[in-house]
């Protein structure tokens, strides 16, 4: 689906080509783990070279040198929310038809695993300078302003993709920074939405529920956009403007108060 073959894709394809065919899948990279507070791994996201059994069960995996495999356990959050691999496969297939090129192709599922095309990009969680930090620590960062500007552009194209999804009558339903990716090539940045098991048809919701579902989709992105503008100054984009308008709703009052001062306006000369 995604024609962008970046450095990571090329490196993984080379690694995959050295794998000898076997019955079972061969894991070539681990890209995500959900862990309990006691350190037990309850969900694994891995890049695998399909084994003979997988190729037989899911023939479309033959089209890719490697693919993404997510393995759940009964303790996994999505399983507890009844967002099973079957649900994820079915909902992702629907959204993929609406947003071709912006959703990884679903390849198969069974009771505990979901498979899709591998996207060789990083999630916003792995790109955001603010992820894993408290709001207070975020405001004390000394970020690289050029990188911050690049991150802001990625967050904004994800916002536009969400807007497109909403305009086609669906919401994501669980848009955390882990569930949006950027596929970066030398000249391109492509937005990708993943983990669509919580997506919903907006037409099945009341008007107020629709508005709330759409707002929820933007919430984490708007938090980061507001923090970005604390450092870079106000950006000229409808989503960045809206994020600033919502600062008092998105953050505790003492943090909102600091962000509203927007000292980033003073940093503009460093970007040129």
């Amino acid at each position: 689906m995604n024609s962008l073959r970046n450095k990571t894709y090329v490196a993984l394809a080379e690694k995959a080509s050295k794998i000898k065919p076997q019955e079972g899948d061969q894991v070539i990279a681990t890209v995500y783990q959900d862990v309990t507070t006691s350190g037990r791994v309850i969900t694994r996201g891995e890049i695998v070279v399909p084994g003979g059994n997988t190729l037989q069960a899911y023939p479309s995996t033959k089209d890719f040198p490697f693919h993404f495999r997510k393995t759940f356990t009964p303790e996994s959050g999505p399983i507890k929310r009844e967002e099973t691999p079957a649900v994820e496969f079915s909902k992702t297939s629907v959204i993929q038809r609406l947003l071709p090129g912006k959703i990884p192709t679903p390849l198969g599922f069974d009771t505990w695993t979901y498979r899709s095309e591998a996207i060789c990009g990083r999630t916003l969680q792995a790109l955001s300078p603010f992820s894993n930090l408290s709001y207070e620590d975020s405001l004390h960062l000394k970020p690289n302003l050029v990188q911050l500007k690049s991150y802001a552009q990625i967050a904004l194209i994800i916002c536009e993709t969400l807007e497109e999804l909403h305009s086609k009558g669906h919401c994501h339903g669980d848009l955390t920074l882990h569930n949006a990716m950027c596929l970066s090539g030398e000249r391109q940045k492509l937005p990708i939405l993943i983990d669509l098991a919580g997506s919903a048809n907006l037409n099945a919701l009341s008007e107020s529920q629709q508005a709330s579902a759409k707002d929820d989709d933007f919430q984490e992105l708007y938090r980061d956009l507001a923090l970005v503008q604390y450092f870079l100054g106000e950006m000229d984009n409808p989503h960045s403007r809206k994020s600033l308008a919502l600062v008092n709703d998105l953050f505790p009052s003492e943090i909102a108060c600091i962000i509203n001062r927007l000292p980033g306006n003073q940093n503009e000369s460093e970007l040129s």
């Binding site: 990571t8 890209v31 996201g45 890049i47 790109l127 992820s131 690049s150 090539g185």
Partner: peptide, 12 residues
């Protein structure tokens, strides 16, 4: 997060 922007997959 310590890798160049175009290296690495996913969140971890």
């Amino acid at each position: 997060k310590a890798q160049p922007e175009d290296m690495g997959i996913g969140s971890h």
